[in-house]
C-alpha cells in the first residue's frame, strides 16, 4: 500500500517549522527558532521542505497543524497559511493538540513511569498546565490541560519532571518539533482529518476578555 506523506506545521511558539513525514525514519524537516520569523519564513520553509522531499502538495495525505494553545499570533499565522494551502490543493487539515505533541516527543526521551508537567506562559499571571505520565512508551494524561495561576506552578509541579517556557523561557519543549506534530497526526489523528475547515480556528484555550471598555 502506498502511504502518502503528511506535511506538518509548528508555529505556536518561537519555533517555526515544517516537516514532510513519510514514516518514522524518512522525513525532511526545517526548523527556525527566531522570534517573530513566522510571517516571513513559514511559506519559504514549507516550500523548501517539500522541495527537499521531492514532492508537491498534491502528493500529500493531509496538512497537520499544531493547534494550540500557544501564541495567539503564531497560531493564527499557522492556521492562515494552512487554510490557504489546504483549500488551494483540496487537502484535509488535521489539527494536532500542541501539548500532546510535546508529550509524544518527550515519551521518546523519558523513562517508563516518569511523571512530567508541561507548562507554558499565558501571561505574567497565568500558565497553561498539563501533567502526563509515561506508560508503555507512550504518554497518558495525569491532569488535563488547564490554565492555572503562575504562583501555583511550583506547588503543582513539585516532584515531577518539568518542561515548557513557564520553567525556562528557552526550553526546547515549550513547543513540539514538527516531526512530532506529524507523528501525532499519524498515530492518533485519523479521526480528526477534515475537509470542513471553513470556520476552523486554533485552540486558543483562553477566551480573550476585553478588560476595559473603550467607551
Amino acid at each position: 500500500m502506498n502511504i502518502k506523506p503528511i506535511l506538518a506545521i509548528e508555529a505556536s511558539g518561537n519555533l517555526c517549522g515544517a516537516v514532510v513525514y513519510f514514516d518514522k525514519s524518512k522525513y525532511t524537516e526545517i526548523n527556525i527558532n527566531i522570534k517573530n520569523s513566522h510571517s516571513g519564513l513559514l511559506l519559504d520553509i514549507i516550500d523548501k521542505t517539500l522541495l527537499y522531499a521531492g514532492i508537491g502538495l498534491k502528493d500529500l495525505e493531509c496538512i497537520a497543524i499544531s493547534s494550540g494553545p500557544g501564541s495567539f499570533t503564531g497560531l493564527r499565522i499557522g492556521y492562515s497559511a494552512v487554510k490557504g494551502l489546504a483549500f488551494g490543493s483540496s487537502l484535509p487539515i488535521c489539527p494536532v493538540p500542541t501539548f500532546e505533541a510535546v508529550a509524544l516527543q518527550l515519551s521518546h526521551v523519558l523513562s517508563e513511569g516518569t511523571s512530567f508537567v508541561i507548562a507554558n506562559k499565558v501571561n505574567v499571571e497565568e500558565v497553561y498546565y498539563a501533567r502526563f505520565h509515561i506508560k508503555s512508551n507512550n504518554y497518558i494524561f495525569a491532569e488535563k490541560l488547564e490554565i492555572i495561576k503562575a504562583s501555583d506552578l511550583q506547588e503543582r509541579s513539585k516532584g515531577y519532571s518539568s518542561f515548557g517556557n513557564a520553567f525556562n523561557k528557552d526550553d526546547e519543549y515549550s513547543a513540539p518539533r514538527p516531526y512530532y506534530v506529524a507523528e501525532w497526526c499519524k498515530l492518533f489523528g485519523a479521526g480528526l482529518h477534515t475537509l470542513n475547515y471553513d470556520y476552523i480556528e486554533p485552540n486558543y484555550f483562553k477566551n480573550f476578555i476585553v478588560k476595559e471598555s473603550l467607551k
Binding site: L42, K83, G84, A86
Partner: peptide
C-alpha cells in the same frame, strides 16, 4: 498587524498552493 497577518498569510498559502 494581527489582522494583516491573517489575510496576507492566507493569500500567500493559497497562491503557493495554486
Amino acid at each position: 498587524i494581527g489582522a494583516l497577518l491573517v489575510g496576507l498569510t492566507f493569500a500567500k498559502g493559497l497562491a503557493y498552493s495554486l
